[in-house]
Nucleic acid binder design. Structure first.
Lengths: 206, 206
DNA sequence: GTCTATAGGGTGATAGAC
DNA sequence: GTCTATCACCCTATAGAC
């Protein structure tokens, strides 16, 4: 029973830490914000996780691993190129619709401390460079078969990721330009899944 | 002569503030970092700009205005749609190649404080929503003429901005995946200008 | 205008009672 | 495990000499 209480508190803290860190970033996040969000005392945070840095590393490590392995899962699946592209776009937009702060959080902190990615990238299993190689191979096969036009696979990969993720990065500007609230933005993103895949397929026509 | 010294110091401070704020963000930026970067005393910052907040507002206001007006300049030019798209892509990639930290800075701070955009958006002259309307009009004209296929102008606009800007947001991940240094990344972005416009035109074929 | 010294407030971390 | 009280440091901002 004491054990059960442990898990419950620890879980509450991690959930709160995720929320506060992703919304504010490491530097602006306050231990007190996390404590209040988890509805516990500030000292307990240190009891469970010792320091702000350790807590942050844990959260960040999970997020970047999830981000990379989510893509890897799609890339290394046995799908056709077309289904794979649809899979990546759908996966990214679905995930980010539920967690719109994630991309800015990841990229902001990664920019501050780029070495960190090397540590965490290994948690993904495959080396991230392998993803691009696998993707390039499949693209070049389709080009050879004549099912799609000739295209640089690396630029294509960047295009796919860009169109899926960037709108969540630029969310405040998009909301202002269109005078949308959160609900309107989410609807737009739901429609966007098909718009993006369609835009890509149309471009790849031979 | 005293006046000249004023301008020189003030300019040095603003330059240093831009560098530190954009690289670290408001919360992580230290007045001491800025002072050291400008090679002056910390107290002088307050003599010239009173507070960290005021200094930040100034820098941020300039950046977001420049960002929006840069796009507006392209949108409201008298170019054909195709030239306009090329203009936007080239302008964004050129600007960000020189200042790769800008997008994350703008979007991170804007996410923290979305109301800020409303104040600064007005500095652009035209209301930002007008940009999208003007762009949509021109796209719909081309569709009617049959020079491009039917497409949602808003999604198209998001696609263009995404593909031009996102790679600079995801720069650390791209550099890692391709095992590139800064020079390699910049070369890739230079090539990307043509890759992106070509990708878009190919997609818009009727 | 530019500096040194320091006030004043906030924040992460720990000690110690329960 | 959970709390209150408190320490020690950091950082912005200002006072005051030059």
């Amino acid at each position: 029973m004491a054990k059960e209480k442990d898990n419950k508190t620890e879980k509450a803290i991690l959930e709160a830490a995720l929320k506060v860190f992703t919304e504010k970033g490491f530097a602006a996040a306050r231990m007190d914000d996390i404590a209040k969000e988890a509805q516990i005392n500030r000292a307990l945070l240190h009891y469970y996780f010792r320091s702000k840095d350790k807590m942050f590393d844990l959260i960040f490590s999970q997020r970047i691993s999830e981000f990379l392995s989510g893509i890897a899962l799609q890339i290394f699946s046995e799908k056709s190129l077309e289904d794979k592209i649809t899979g990546i776009v759908d996966h990214e937009i679905n995930t980010l619709s539920a967690h719109p702060y994630l991309p800015i959080f990841i990229f902001q902190e990664l920019t501050q401390n780029p070495e960190r990615i090397v540590q965490h990238a290994k948690n993904v299993g495959a080396h991230p460079g392998d993803m691009l190689k696998k993707f390039s191979l499949q693209v070049n096969e389709e080009i050879k078969k004549g099912t799609i036009r000739s295209v640089d696979p690396i630029q294509l990969f960047m295009n796919i990721m860009s169109m899926a993720i960037y709108p969540f990065v630029a969310r405040p500007i998009i909301k202002m330009m269109l005078e949308f609230d959160d609900a309107g933005f989410n609807k737009l993103m739901k429609k966007r899944k098909e718009a993006v895949t369609d835009f890509i397929y149309k471009s790849l026509r031979p």
